[in-house]
Design a protein around this nucleic acid. Structure first.
Length: 431
RNA sequence: UCCCCAGUAGCUCAGUUGGCAGAGCAGGUGGCUGUUAACCACCGGGUCCGCGGUUCGAGUCCGUGCUGGGGAGCCA
């Protein structure tokens, strides 16, 4: 007897199969009983009818609780009344375990309760849809880079000092007399990689010990960060557009059922077509001023500002050449206009905010050293980084794409916490 | 760190002017010959977040602490 998965059950019409899965819920009416099974690939209804189903299985029905693990054997039948079009006419049931009373009832629950039960919440259709889309986002992004000759280069998680210097870091004292920190970006290491491989990217977790408590923030989140040698700001702006297009295309192509579960308006995703809108910081500033915001040149945009800008457009917006003051020390200033940096952000549509940040890196050793000093960073920690400019320095650029914000945007989520299997937030570490 | 909101049954919530603690779901029992979060009847289930105060009387009003949620700043 072949064990088949629910998504392939249609190929076995009128054949006897075994399905291994969990009972999501059950119903009965007189002499007919229904089990709804989930196996990770789909959901199917199993039907027990007196006279056609083994009496032993029918007698088992009252014992079967939500989330009990079962192997159900029976005949695959096409039936209009069954969700999914097919059902199993049960011959027999083998029980792996009768589950205890399951905390997550088929009804609405509060966020706090669901977060406390995240390990079980993952079983619900909505969460599975989101996390499958996350898989596709990461997978398609990696394919995009792989196909263009990038090398995956994993960045370290434990680092001797800050990549950016400003944000709060997670500290560990494991390394004796010197502190170590959890990485907040793999970028500096990708720059070293770009000088070795030409084009590299990393994809991994990053950590920010900021006391941020908003729907866009996680304490631990994932980034995919490409870095390219012999490249300038324009190169990576094109790369960013191509990456987002590739991700959206892959999700639309392979995740329609999941988007449907999420009730996502796919027309919003279908209109993500090239070319994206490209604005200078000054132009974005003008949009805000026209909307009545009193914002002065030199100020960075807040979350509300980003939403206002992105609401002007129906696809992602690239904003470039922000005031250098608002950017990290490693950004190269525009030689034609030194008060702005050769940097760019990509704002997702529908108010999802910044999903990409990047730019061209400072490639002159003396200027970089000055910037490190101005940022009041310990020179010795960055000596290796300056070395990259001493031994064959080249123009190079890269960016980081936030996985969870991208997933939240594509899925149309209210909060990034659902875009990662086990979210770590301010004051939330469990489960 | 700051601002706003909430905390009542396992879960989601209602609880009037301060006057006997409630419903739906989940759980249990029974019924129903095709259900779609099935339905119907019945049953069990409470530190009303903690502490202090006002009052004849507090789930309700006041103070305070804790927990959770939303937002700001900062960021992806």
């Amino acid at each position: 007897m072949a064990i088949v998965t629910i998504n392939t059950v249609g190929k076995h019409e009128d054949q006897s199969v075994t399905i291994c899965g969990w009972l999501t819920h059950k119903r009965s009416s007189g002499r007919i009983r229904f089990l709804v099974l989930r196996d990770g690939t789909g959901i199917i209804q199993a039907t027990m009818i007196k006279g056609e189903t083994d009496q032993q299985a029918i007698d088992l029905y009252p014992e079967l609780t939500q989330e009990s693990s079962l192997a159900v054997t029976g005949t695959v039948r096409r039936d209009q009344r069954a969700p999914g079009g097919y059902e199993i006419l049960v011959a027999g049931i083998e029980v792996f375990q009768i589950a205890e009373t399951y905390p997550i009832a088929p009804k609405e629950h509060g966020v706090g309760f669901l977060m406390d039960h995240r390990h079980l919440w993952l079983r619900s259709p909505r969460q599975r849809a989101i996390l499958r889309i996350r898989h596709t986002v990461i997978d398609s992004a990696r394919k995009f880079f792989d196909d263009q000759g990038f090398t995956l280069l994993d960045a370290p998680i434990l680092t001797p000092s800050s990549c950016e210097g400003t944000t709060t870091l997670f500290e560990t004292d494991y390394f004796g007399n010197r502190k170590a920190f959890l990485s907040q970006s793999g970028q500096l290491y990708m720059e070293a990689g770009a000088m070795a491989f030409g084009k590299v990217y990393c994809c991994g977790p990053t950590f920010r010990a900021e006391k941020s408590k908003t729907r866009r923030h996680l304490t631990e989140f994932w980034m995919i960060e490409p870095e390219i040698a012999f490249a300038d700001l324009g190169t990576i702006m094109g790369l960013a557009e191509g990456l987002i297009l590739a991700i959206v295309e892959a999700v639309l192509k392979t995740r329609q059922p999941e988007l449907q579960i999420l009730k996502r308006d796919v027309t919003k995703l279908e209109q993500i077509q090239p070319p994206f809108h490209v604005l200078r910081y000054d132009e974005a500033l003008q949009i805000l001023r026209d909307a009545g915001e009193s914002i002065v040149w030199g100020q960075d945009f807040g979350g509300g500002h980003e939403t206002m800008i992105s609401n002007h457009f129906d696809k992602p917006v690239l904003i470039h050449r922000y005031p250098a003051e608002t950017r990290a020390f490693y950004m190269k200033n525009d030689p034609d206009r030194p008060e702005v940096a050769l940097c760019m952000d990509v704002l997702a549509p529908e108010g999802y905010g910044e999903i990409i940040g990047g730019g061209q890196r400072e490639d002159v050793p003396d200027i970089l050293e000055q910037k490190i000093q101005q940022a009041e960073l310990p020179a010795e920690d960055f000596a290796w980084y300056v070395d990259l400019r001493r031994y064959g320095s080249v123009p190079h650029a890269g960016f980081g794409l936030g996985i969870e914000r991208t997933v939240a945007w594509i899925c149309g989520l209210e909060h990034v916490r659902e875009a990662i299997p086990f979210p770590r937030l301010l004051d939330r570490l469990h489960p």
